[in-house]
């Protein structure tokens, strides 16, 4: 898939009437009930809402992991909802970085090798060492995941996600398994990446306080967007308390 011609002009994501239904008939669960949304490029966007409100489902569809039942979803000028599996794989490979709640590092690879896992297949990767430096783990590049703390593992995961220089970074509860100090450090890394590389960051979280660092906060309820709030003033991650 070619790079978007002028990514700055287009919003990173655009959806119209996006729905997702699991199951059929009476047992059907409506995870998304018609979502219309625009995510401008280069912003940090936080998706908030109770469990089952549809925020993770939206993230999965925008991340190319799941398919919508109906409606359209665009990444810049590419229609995600029309892509075949193979195209979605290339989309994830070339444009998207993922940060998971449970890090999902390969236990058999060192920190640096985990990053290389991605740089080996990416188009225009940064140096793995530099990615680790960015998350402050340059010194621990040769450690295996089992030798790292939870926060360190999550930072390796972020380094792995940004090393391909993605257009978008998807984070599903990135601090969910971390204590608050470590969590703040992780959020700082995400903010820095957004600042330094202009990467659009989409973050799903339960921690409402996290919203303070976002450009934009989207509240979910019952499979639909309740409201979208633009933060006039953003709080640096270090000052977030939860």
């Amino acid at each position: 898939m070619p790079k978007p011609s002028d990514t700055k002009a287009l919003p990173a994501f655009r959806t119209a009437g996006l729905t997702k239904t699991y199951g059929e008939g009476k047992a059907a669960v409506h995870a998304l009930r018609g979502v219309d949304l625009e995510v401008p490029t280069g912003e940090v966007v936080v998706l908030l809402g109770p469990s089952g409100s549809g925020k993770s489902t939206l993230l999965n569809i925008l991340g190319g992991l799941d398919r919508a039942t109906s409606g359209d979803a665009y990444f810049t000028d590419h229609e995600l909802t029309a892509m075949a599996d193979r195209e979605l794989t290339l989309y994830r490979r070339d444009h998207v970085g993922f940060v998971f709640q449970f890090y999902n590092l390969m236990p058999s690879l060192t920190a640096e090798e985990n990053v290389e896992l991605v740089t080996e297949i990416a188009h225009n990767p940064m140096d793995p060492g530099k990615a680790l430096d960015l998350v402050g783990l340059g010194e621990r590049r040769h450690h295996f995941p089992a030798q790292l703390s939870g926060g360190e593992q999550q930072r390796v995961a972020i380094a792995r996600a940004i090393a391909k220089q993605p257009d978008v970074l998807f984070c599903d509860e990135p601090t969910g398994a971390l204590d608050s100090t470590t969590g703040r450090a992780v959020l700082k890394v995400l903010a820095d990446v957004n600042e330094a590389l202009g990467t659009t960051v989409l973050m799903v979280t339960h921690a409402a306080a996290t919203a303070a660092m976002a450009h934009r906060v989207i509240h979910f309820a019952d499979g639909a967007i309740r409201d979208v709030v633009r933060n006039a003033e953003r709080l640096p991650p270090e000052e977030i308390v939860w």
Partner: peptide, 21 residues
Amino acid sequence: APADYSSTGQAAGLSRRLLDQ
């Protein structure tokens, strides 16, 4: 917890050059 692979050691020499991740 991730399984501990530290005992397998670093990739060095030949394996570093020949093997991808």
